[in-house]
Measured scan of single mutants.
Amino acid sequence: MSIQHFRVALIPFFAAFCLPVFAHPETLVKVKDAEDQLGARVGYIELDLNSGKILESFRPEERFPMMSTFKVLLCGAVLSRVDAGQEQLGRRIHYSQNDLVEYSPVTEKHLTDGMTVRELCSAAITMSDNTAANLLLTTIGGPKELTAFLHNMGDHVTRLDRWEPELNEAIPNDERDTTMPAAMATTLRKLLTGELLTLASRQQLIDWMEADKVAGPLLRSALPAGWFIADKSGAGERGSRGIIAALGPDGKPSRIVVIYTTGSQATMDERNRQIAEIGASLIKHW
């Protein structure tokens, strides 16, 4: 067993022997301040990774656009098919120029040779490549099948209805392509620590998230040296922004954090800054 596999296998073990965790309302004060600064709703939840206990939450059962955070769930569904012998990570998928959609920095470079399922998941999570996500959605049967996968996990809230990039439209009061912070946090925890996926697939999923290259201005910008984070960000229309993450000190994750916002007129930089400040408060009061 590799060191990384050992780390993920012992996530519940280490967490069980940690000192009790206590909620700190100071972080919620910052979440509410972010709402004021952005002029928009902000949803927040913080779960203990081992027990699933909610440590703090704000608007945990209000719907927010998922945006690209759905790509972690998508690759979880792909990995479940791999575990069941219905898919192979090494299978190569070929596609054409007509398949390319807006923001496809990886797939646009491989029109000639195609990409493997493993490479597509890596591109979808680490670079948020939209064509990679659409190609992977095709392998599982489309958005409705991802929703069905989530329902089978016990998540009857999260739903995907459309493809990239239309799913980022974020129309107010439109339930399409949305989740709730509580539902997303619980589902992410199941994917990373539950028995739904094999140990190898859980490790692969967290490795992809740990290698995320496009979430630097968010929670990662607030992390002290030595902290662990595996995350996936999302951005959408109407001032929408979000991030889902597993993080913790001492090089291992111990909490799940989900943050979503929508309806702001603020710039992307300002949305990023507010999420980073929430992260800084979380870490300060850990």
Rank of each mutant, 00 (worst) to 15 (best):
A182W: 09
K213T: 12
K213V: 06
N173T: 12
L55D: 11
I259F: 11
L218R: 13
A182F: 05
I283Q: 14
R92F: 10
A215H: 15
G90W: 11
Y260S: 14
K32M: 07
A215I: 07
G141S: 02
E270W: 00
R241C: 14
Q265F: 03
L247H: 02
T198K: 04
A133F: 01
E166W: 09
R81N: 04
Y260P: 07
L135P: 05
P25I: 06
T116N: 01
P181F: 00
G142N: 02
K284I: 05
P143R: 02
T179S: 15
I244S: 12
Q274P: 13
N272K: 12
N272P: 08
M115D: 11
G248Y: 04
N168T: 09
T179I: 00
L167K: 00
L28A: 07
E169M: 05
E164C: 15
N173D: 12
T261E: 15
G142L: 00
I93A: 01
P105W: 03
A245N: 12
A276I: 11
I244C: 13
A280E: 09
A148D: 10
T112I: 04
R118F: 13
D177A: 12
E108Q: 09
H285D: 00
M184W: 01
K213D: 15
L146C: 01
N168L: 06
P60Q: 07
E270A: 11
R189K: 12
E166T: 03
R63T: 08
H24F: 08
L38G: 01
R162E: 00
I54W: 10
G194E: 11
V78Y: 09
L73D: 04
F228S: 14
A185Q: 14
L89R: 01
T186L: 05
G141V: 03
D174T: 04
T158N: 10
T179A: 15
A133D: 01
S221V: 14
N130E: 10
I140Y: 05
Y95D: 15
T116K: 01
K144A: 03
L167A: 01
G90I: 06
T158H: 12
N50S: 09
A182Q: 04
G279M: 15
I125E: 05
A123H: 10
G234R: 11
A133H: 05
G242R: 11
A124I: 01
V31A: 09
L136K: 03
N152W: 09
A230M: 09
D212V: 12
A185K: 12
R162L: 00
G248M: 07
P249T: 05
V72F: 06
V82L: 00
L218V: 15
Y260A: 06
Y260T: 10
Q86C: 03
M153I: 07
R81P: 06
D250R: 08
A40L: 13
L247E: 14
T198V: 02
D129Y: 02
G242A: 05
E175K: 04
G236C: 00
R41Q: 11
R189D: 15
R189Y: 14
H94L: 11
L79A: 03
I45Y: 12
R41M: 15
N168V: 07
K32I: 08
L191A: 12
T131I: 11
V78Q: 01
S68L: 07
Y95M: 14
I54P: 05
D177N: 00
D36Q: 11
Q37A: 11
S264C: 00
L74W: 02
G239M: 00
C75M: 00
M268Q: 14
I206F: 01
L196N: 12
S128N: 14
D177L: 08
H94P: 12
T139R: 07
M153R: 04
G142C: 00
G90V: 02
E145A: 14
R159S: 11
H94V: 10
N134Q: 01
L49I: 03
T69V: 12
G142S: 01
M127T: 13
E87D: 00
N130V: 11
G154K: 02
D83Y: 02
L49N: 01
I256T: 12
M268S: 15
T158L: 10
E195Q: 04
G263C: 00
I229A: 13
G242S: 13
R159I: 02
W286L: 07
T178W: 14
G251H: 08
T116Y: 00
I243H: 10
A235C: 12
R176V: 01
R271G: 14
I244N: 12
G52A: 11
D207C: 04
N272D: 14
I54D: 11
L167C: 00
H151F: 03
D113Y: 07
T126E: 13
L55A: 10
T27C: 11
N98K: 12
V258A: 07
A230V: 11
G142M: 04
S80Y: 14
F64W: 07
E270V: 12
I206G: 06
R81A: 07
F149S: 05
L100P: 06
A84Q: 05
V257Q: 13
Y103P: 13
H94D: 02
G236L: 15
G154A: 09
T69P: 09
N168K: 12
A132C: 06
W163V: 12
L196S: 10
S233R: 10
A183I: 06
L160R: 08
S201I: 00
F64A: 03
I45E: 07
S96Q: 04
L146G: 05
P25V: 01
L197V: 03
N98S: 11
Q265M: 10
G85I: 02
G242F: 13
P172R: 01
G236N: 00
E26H: 07
I140V: 09
I283L: 13
A215N: 15
D177P: 06
G142F: 01
S96Y: 06
T178M: 10
H156A: 09
A123C: 01
